[in-house]
Amino acid sequence: MSPSDEPAIVTRGLTKRFSSGQVAVDGIDLHVPAGAVYGFLGPNGSGKTTTIRMLLGLVRPTAGEVSVLGAPMPAAAHRVLGPVGALVEGPAFQPYLTGRENLVRMDACDPSADPATRDARLDRALGRVGLGAAAGKRYRQYSLGMKQRLGLAGALLRPRRLLVLDEPTNGLDPQGTREVRHLVRELAGEGTTVLVSSHLLAEIDQVCTHLGIMSAGRLVLQGERASLAEHRTVRVRATVRPHQVQAATSVLTGLGLEQVGVEGDEVVALLGTVDPAAVSAALVHAGLDLLGLQVLAPTLEQVFVELTGEGFDVAR
């Protein structure tokens, strides 16, 4: 059994139509390579959570296939889910038990967990999420951030091959968000495949090796993060003296740049495949005073917004 070459998650034509007739997920082909940190993005209501529930065997697909760690879901759920840790739609624990008691109960219910190593594993998981000190408090009294941390600790009670983290930074302050990013990096470094969903690209952009973007039940974009960056439309902005703007425009047009336009004292154009150094050289060569040259790569955020639409409207 070599888990290294087979993808951690593959779906084909995965579809979920609820009995209400609503199509939450519409024929998506997900591909999460082993060892990847897969950023699963999309606005609220785009079908991320329903997809994750189908990956984990909680919800039966209407159509399509799911394979997790090489085995079909949900048929093989009892064999597959052991080495899979998950945080789905927020943490959930018994409110009247303490954080630690909740983890003890969880571990006692885990059919393959070794009771002899329980305390050590609990301490380590609580320590990893920075909850060691608050473990004796009742879950009811936890803040949203502490609840989220306990949920993460639950997912980390055992060493995992695959972690599925649905909106793991919900309710966390910026410091907590950084800690989660750090934790994801650390786990990925240990060889764990991580699928992390979010409606906020900025939160997970920095840790992902792969990205998949959902919009209205469809997977609109998927691939390595680096290759997605190539799709970006990079622009160049040159600042010259006001009376030189016209001359600069013709220089850029002469270089073969498209969509050349003027914004005040600045000339803006699509860079395309032209080297920015060639742009500055051409402007200087034409005898213009080049006061500034900026290369404007859109953030992934802008790509994301372009694909999924903007604003607070939930997709459905």
């Binding site: 070599s2 888990p3 290294s4 082993a34 060892g35 064999r79 052991g82 080495p83 059919p111 393959s112 967990a113 070794d114 055992r158 060493p159 995992r160 091959r161 470094g189 240990e190 060889g191 764990t192 495949t193």
Partner: peptide
């Protein structure tokens, strides 16, 4: 490393 940290763990029901 790519084999992941979980391969030495026992996953059958005890």
């Amino acid at each position: 490393a790519v084999d992941g940290p979980a391969t030495t763990e026992r996953w059958e029901p005890r």
